[in-house]
Design a protein around this nucleic acid. Structure first.
Lengths: 350, 350
DNA sequence: TCACCGTCTCGAAACGATTCGATTCGACGC
DNA sequence: GCGTCGAATCGAATCGTTTCGAGACGGTGA
């Protein structure tokens, strides 16, 4: 806003010789105003250089800001190198844009300090787009303020949620590998929770990741009746990490014949690691991912994967946020996934 | 915000038995309040479930919103697949975050319709982060509203600007190739302006792109005393496009011995095209880019490029926006670049 | 002509805080 | 005991709109 002496609706009204309320009506179009009066007001506004009703004053009076906060991972550079994030955000942005709502981007890890914006920023609702574990301080801060929240890929009772059929999708994908004769299957999950580190874990043990999608996709593997021969928790869900995990799984005598990664980026990394180790895909090892994102630089390979409707997920979240802002009750949304068979999976060797 | 009957500062003050002004002081900490009084107020607030001062009311009174709008390309999915965008945005987000300022993300192509948010959204200043040509309607709309603007990589007199030494950097890079004995050098520029299409253009003709960086980087090539044998304007600055342009330049009998691309993503595409055509880099053809972004999937190659301080560029823009919001006058910033010699350039063949 | 009824316009009260200038109160010095 | 001073507190104005109920005005039907 311009600082100092801005011209206000009162100035315009005075100049046009009408009351402030009439001038307001002339601008907002809500209520009957004689065409001649409206013109007079608009003319005065133009002459005085009136920039239109102050959005802040309007917000105060109306009791709504028209802004939805979107909480994403702390380092945008990292978060946005994952097409899953950017495509979801794109969906959110599209839907909010079409509704004339603003998108307040709040980078924040869902553990550690909560950025002041989340405590004091003006917003009608918030979408937590990154991974979020129970007890998430960001979520709690919003809750305390009474800001309604939409969680993407997290199960919460007191918020709207948007989830996908991770579990069934992963089960179907894993089943496919079983059908191809694979018995030595390894799994790379998603990170279990906020404390991130790369490690093997016991597939037969008690596996309870804090993050919902991590939990669901793991459960999907087990649903397919598979007990992985090796299981790795990655530190992130990026290509580099996939390469590192891929090495851990493939550079050993008892290597598996198939690797199921819980994200396409991880799977792509595994693919690179395999190439690097001189392994043929899918002849020597099959690789499958999850998400169905477009990775043109992987050409000519096409990753076998479970495709989730990322843009639609974003749009759904945005719609849910708008609904909450309008005073509706929280709802839960579940989006379907589809299996995409690519070139990176094939019959188990020998 | 919670709709309906929220508890206000007045309620808290009444409950605590103090005046509204004292209660306000107790919260904001601006002004003398007896410790005992403050405690009493905070206690009442806690009991009544007061959520803290309403940000909108505060904004109205204070005359500032604490929000900086950032205008980026229309399709986030596309914009954010360019590390140049994400890294710059990361810098902006970091700096704004540290200052407690909000980041209102506004996707908008800088031609075509201006999103309503730009006309009516609450903001103290705006950063135009995407490419912007003279007469940019988004810029004009902001100007009309009296919102101060920072332009990244665009020359404007009536706004703050953040630019880099494109021209000198490109000249240095091109000079390097000349020193390596290259005489048949081809160039891929950036898009010239909003109307985007892929085409050869006459390098000896009158070349005046609307976008500043396009103009500067082209000028840099000429500064090095080079008249390219072939010149292509790309439709975007992405990898796919680089592949397409690379084919146009390399899949012909009179192919150049070196290709200078105005962005790393384009250069990476050229590299892929070269590999595809069975050309060795740099033995058969040298390839250079611009930006200095990290492209790990290009391994083992490292692109010869001009590195620009992307995060710092974002931070500088954010600082400039904060300064404008605080009422300072527009300023112009110029950031340095450095040459990074990678593995993709070598002596001219034969 | 009168009562009535739309249509348009207006005044005033919110919306929820911040801030300025004034007032009160207690303590202290003389 | 009185005047003075500083700290703490308070009232009231203000930020710029929107909105509600009431009023004015002109025209219509009986």
């Amino acid at each position: 806003m311009a600082r100092g002496d801005r011209t206000t609706l009162a100035d315009v009204a005075a100049d046009a010789g009408v009351s402030v309320s009439t001038a307001s009506l002339a601008f907002s179009g809500a209520g009957p105003v004689a065409p001649k009066t409206r013109e007079k007001v608009l003319a005065s506004a133009a002459r005085l250089g009136y920039r239109g009703p102050d959005p802040v004053a309007r917000s105060l009076r109306r009791g709504e800001t028209g802004v939805i906060a979107v909480v994403v991972g702390d380092r945008l550079q990292r978060s946005f190198s994952d097409p899953v994030s950017t495509q979801t955000l794109d969906g959110i942005a599209q839907e909010l844009g079409e509704r004339g709502l603003g998108l307040l981007l709040v980078p924040s890890d869902t553990f550690g300090d909560v950025p002041p914006l989340l405590r004091h920023g003006a917003m009608d609702a918030a979408i937590i787009a990154g991974l979020s574990a129970p007890g998430d301080p960001a979520l709690r801060a919003l809750r305390e303020r009474g800001v309604p929240v939409v969680c993407i890929e997290a199960t919460r009772r007191d918020a709207s949620t948007v989830e996908i059929q991770d579990r069934a999708g992963t089960a179907e994908l894993t089943g496919e590998l079983v059908a191809l004769g694979h018995t030595r299957i390894a799994v790379i999950t998603l990170p279990f929770g906020p404390q991130r580190h790369r490690r093997f874990f016991d597939p037969a043990g008690d596996v309870r990741p804090a993050y919902t999608p991590t939990r669901n996709r793991w459960a999907g593997v087990r649903d397919a009746g598979v007990l992985p021969v090796l299981a790795v928790e990655p530190a992130t869900s990026l290509v580099d990490e996939g390469v590192a995990c891929g090495r851990m799984l493939l550079d050993r005598p008892d290597r598996p014949t198939a690797v199921v990664a819980a994200s396409d980026l991880l799977a792509a990394g595994v693919l690179l690691a395999a190439r690097d180790l001189g392994l043929r895909v899918p002849e020597d090892v099959s690789v499958a991912g999850f998400d169905g994102v477009d990775l043109p630089w992987l050409a000519p390979d096409v990753l076998t994967s479970v495709t989730q409707p990322l843009t639609e997920k974003g749009r759904t979240a945005a719609r849910a946020a708008a609904a909450l802002a309008a005073g509706e009750k929280p709802r839960h949304h579940l989006l379907p996934v589809t299996l995409r068979t690519g070139t990176t999976t094939g019959p188990a060797p020998r």
